[in-house]
Simulated scan of single mutants.
Amino acid sequence: MTISQHAESTTTAFIASSDVAETAAFPGSARVELIMGMPVSVDIRTALPARELNPLLDDAFAWLRWVDDTFSPVKEDSQIGRLNRGRTLRQIPELVEVLHRCDELSEATEGYFEARIDGVTDPSGYIKGWALERLSRALSNAGAGDHRITAGNDTRVRGSAAPGVRWRVGVRDPRDGVVRKVVCAHDLGIATSGGAPVVNPRTGEIQDGLRAVTVIGPDLGLADAYATAVFAMGPMPGRRFAADLARSGPYETMIVLPDGQEVTTPGFAEHGGARSRLAG
């Protein structure tokens, strides 16, 4: 048994036993692979035959590997690596799309989300959420409309975990793994920042005024970038931006302060489950 096969079987068993207590088993299939330096899971619940599910999972992970090979700032021959070294780039529409969106997000967050610092381009605060969002749409277009995709602290759910049952996603504190909230939804992106150091682009210093920031909304790429920006802002500017974000659109935020206190925008609670806080 390969590492990925072992991870797949273990994850499938865990999902079946813990996420949907109403059913003893579920249709579909799940797989976990190491990509971007982290375990990435794709869990499809749509009842499709294996001859369709397996190619869908193959294509899903091929896409994620392509994203990593193209946008990784640490791979010298990735397009981002080549850009930072002044080398020739391939004409890739997705590269133009991502860089353009990063520029828009920089403007929308008054520079607190910034993919270019000191002449170095690094879209990491957006690219993982963007990749999972694109994958989610592709799976839906292929007929697998019931799925959950998770990479690190980012999750995209769509459809149902079981007939009529919303997905339940535990929002974990990235520092100690405690589940602070359970988010229930049929169609939502959930992004948490704070697991890795976040730099305030205005000062060039690591921001340590917050413990974690979670943003939920319809586009995981935007939620990912907003979570990074709010964390970079720090406590008071971050709370003001989160409030403005909630008033102007469908993105809600939970901010965890250094002492563990949680501050949420009003709409965040609308996605809560029966248990909003768990011990682990």
Rank of each mutant, 00 (worst) to 15 (best):
I206W: 01
W63S: 14
Q5P: 00
M1P: 07
Y226E: 04
L245H: 10
G152L: 13
S78G: 09
V157N: 06
K181G: 05
A50C: 06
D146G: 06
T88G: 07
N153C: 08
R134C: 07
T70N: 09
R277L: 12
R116L: 07
R175T: 12
G129R: 04
T155S: 13
R82Q: 10
A161Q: 14
A25T: 15
L188I: 11
S106K: 13
S136I: 06
I190Q: 03
V215M: 11
D208C: 06
R166N: 10
T12I: 08
T265E: 06
P93R: 07
F14A: 13
S136F: 04
R87C: 02
D187R: 01
L83K: 12
L48M: 09
D69C: 05
I117K: 03
P93D: 10
T121Y: 15
R211F: 00
T155F: 09
Q5N: 08
R240I: 14
D176H: 13
E8A: 15
S193K: 03
T155W: 08
R211D: 05
N153M: 12
I216K: 02
A131G: 09
A47K: 13
T121L: 11
D43V: 06
G221L: 10
D259R: 08
F241V: 11
A138K: 10
G159L: 03
Y112T: 03
P39W: 13
N54A: 14
D77F: 15
L48G: 02
V178M: 07
A142F: 06
M1G: 08
L222D: 08
L220F: 00
R240L: 15
V42G: 11
V32T: 15
A246F: 05
T11Q: 09
V96P: 00
V171E: 01
V199Y: 05
N141V: 08
A7V: 00
A243F: 10
L220G: 01
C184E: 15
S72H: 11
L95P: 00
E262C: 10
L83G: 05
A142M: 09
P218I: 00
A232D: 00
A16V: 06
F14K: 04
G272I: 00
T10R: 06
V74C: 04
V98T: 10
A243H: 13
I92V: 12
R31A: 10
S17V: 08
V213E: 11
L278F: 02
R87D: 09
R87W: 11
A269F: 08
G145Q: 11
G189H: 03
A138F: 04
F26P: 00
G234A: 03
D69L: 15
E52H: 12
A242S: 14
L257S: 13
R65S: 09
K75V: 14
R172F: 01
Q207Y: 02
M36Q: 05
P197Q: 02
S124Y: 02
Y251P: 02
A50T: 15
P27D: 14
G145M: 09
A60L: 07
I216S: 03
G37C: 06
R156D: 02
S276C: 07
A246D: 14
L95F: 03
W167C: 06
G164P: 05
S124H: 01
P27Q: 12
P174Y: 01
V120K: 10
R82I: 03
D173C: 14
A24C: 06
G234M: 04
E52D: 13
Y112S: 04
